[in-house]
């Protein structure tokens, strides 16, 4: 048991160190933010991207392309895919019995912003 504890603990810290090193030296393969963040999209344009592999959402007046993020979302895919192509502010702000997503999730969301929602 003691050996399992020592090996598991060492492997854990090794993993944490590797991920920290990766965050410093590995290049990100997807540069979503390269798209213009000021471009305006109508809700109709957003609605055309309503699949798991082509998923846009409008949240708080911003438009996000979450296609690359869907596989990383911790919940079941259908929970998030149901909101692809839609105005999802309410869903975003009321996950888990009315509580919003965490500040970390909000920060993560910014990486996928492709523009603003055209309200006209």
């Amino acid at each position: 048991m003691k050996r399992i504890y020592i090996v598991a603990t060492l492997l854990f810290w090794l993993g944490v160190t590797a991920i920290w090193a990766g965050s410093h030296w590995m290049p990100a393969t997807q540069e979503v933010a390269a798209l213009s963040p000021t471009k305006a999209y109508s809700l109709q344009a957003v609605a055309a991207h309503n699949r798991a592999d082509n998923c846009w959402m409008a949240i708080n007046g911003q438009v996000y392309d979450l296609s690359a993020y869907i596989p990383q979302h911790p919940s079941a895919p259908e929970v998030i895919v149901a909101w692809c192509g839609k105005e999802a502010t309410t869903a975003y702000m009321t996950k888990n019995r009315g509580r919003p997503h965490s500040p970390y999730a909000t920060e993560l969301l910014q990486r996928y912003r492709i523009g603003v929602l055209d309200m006209r």
Binding site: A8, F12, V16, I19, G22, M26, S102, Y104, E107, L108
Partner: peptide, 29 residues
Amino acid sequence: LSHPLFLAGQALPAHPQSAWQIISPGSPT
């Protein structure tokens, strides 16, 4: 112990910075 490593491992290939944010001990959440 493997739980956060798996969560961060998903993001590591495409978004290494996101992976570190998931597992970082300095997480603000």
